[in-house]
Design a protein around this nucleic acid. Structure first.
Length: 283
DNA sequence: CAAAACAATCCTGTTACTTCA
DNA sequence: AATGAAGTAACAGGATTGTTT
């Protein structure tokens, strides 16, 4: 669960309850390590009524509801302190005050703010948040954009190594003021993009191969027809028109081999030829 | 030592948000 | 102002791998 150890070790008792007041699928417990984070969605409000939810609070404090604290947060004096600006911004407002308010098209780069800054920032926004929200509490899931500096640093890091060990991830996250999970996700997506690009390049290459081979096939068919016609015209002996007959060196070799074999020997294996590897017109 | 359980990480596919034309 | 496309952050789920019991 998303309980920070501080809460467990402080000697306080925790109460876990099931109520019918809030949450959606998004708040359901997950087996994944980082999925304890509560995620709001646009169509699925972070808190909605008439849905079962888990509530967790300190015993004797009935007002403490849904204190699901991510691992990197600290609980003290009934307040959730954040080691991560983004997470704090998510938690401080139950409706997930995050980076931007789509209605006003204001994109705020929270990444640049420190934790303390965020606390202030979030408080400021919470007051103005009400008017930004739908009547029924619906709130769009906001996506944070990385700053140019952050992207550049991540790119640099990716160039050095496309995967990160935990230490590198932590260091990078600290350096960028991001959560390690965000760094991890960025690298995953970056690897996926690289692979996709490579696949597209490969696809283009194969298309060209296919085109070239089709052309070549057409040309050889034509050549064969011409030879057949020539054979009909000169049935006895005809010196090979060397200028028109092009022979792949590897085919020739196979034919030579075949000529030494008995009539019942196996036919040579068809070989697939890469037209780009050999500029020969015939191949 | 083998096997089960678990955690961490990766990949792939998808969703949802932002930006821009 | 509205809209669709492209880019991308974030997520889900399954596979793999290393560690622990």
């Amino acid at each position: 669960m998303g309980l920070h150890q501080d809460a467990n070790t402080s000697g306080l008792h925790l109460v876990l309850g099931l109520s019918l007041t809030a949450t959606t699928k998004e708040t359901a417990p997950s087996t994944k390590p980082d999925d304890h984070l509560i995620k709001p969605t646009p169509s699925k409000p972070y808190y909605s009524s008439n849905e079962p939810s888990l509530t967790l609070g300190l015993s004797g404090e009935s007002n403490h509801v849904a204190k699901l604290v991510p691992r990197n947060n600290v609980v003290a004096n009934n307040k959730v302190y954040c080691e991560d600006p983004l997470e704090l911004s998510r938690q401080t407002s139950p409706h997930s005050v995050v980076s931007s308010f789509s209605t006003g098209r204001v994109v705020k780069r929270e990444r640049d703010l420190s934790c303390e800054d965020i606390e202030v920032e979030v408080e400021e926004r919470v007051s103005s948040r009400v008017s930004d929200e739908d009547e029924d509490g619906n709130n769009a899931r906001k996506k944070l954009r990385l700053t140019k500096e952050q992207s550049a640093l991540l790119e640099d890091s990716f160039k050095q190594h496309s995967t990160l060990n935990p230490k590198q991830k932590q260091a990078l996250a600290r350096q960028l003021n991001l959560r390690p999970r965000q760094v991890e996700v960025w690298f995953q997506n970056r690897r996926a993009r690289t692979k996709l690009k490579q696949t597209e390049v490969d696809c283009e290459f194969l298309k060209k191969c296919c085109e070239t081979l089709t052309d070549e096939n057409r040309r050889l068919k034509k050549e064969l027809q011409e030879l057949k016609a020539l054979k009909l015209a000169q049935p006895l002996y005809m010196p090979m028109p060397a200028a028109t007959l092009t022979m792949c060196p590897s085919c020739e070799r196979l034919n030579d081999n075949a000529s030494n074999k008995s009539p019942f020997s196996m036919a040579p294996k068809p070989h697939f030829y890469n037209p780009f590897a050999n500029p020969s017109a015939a191949c």
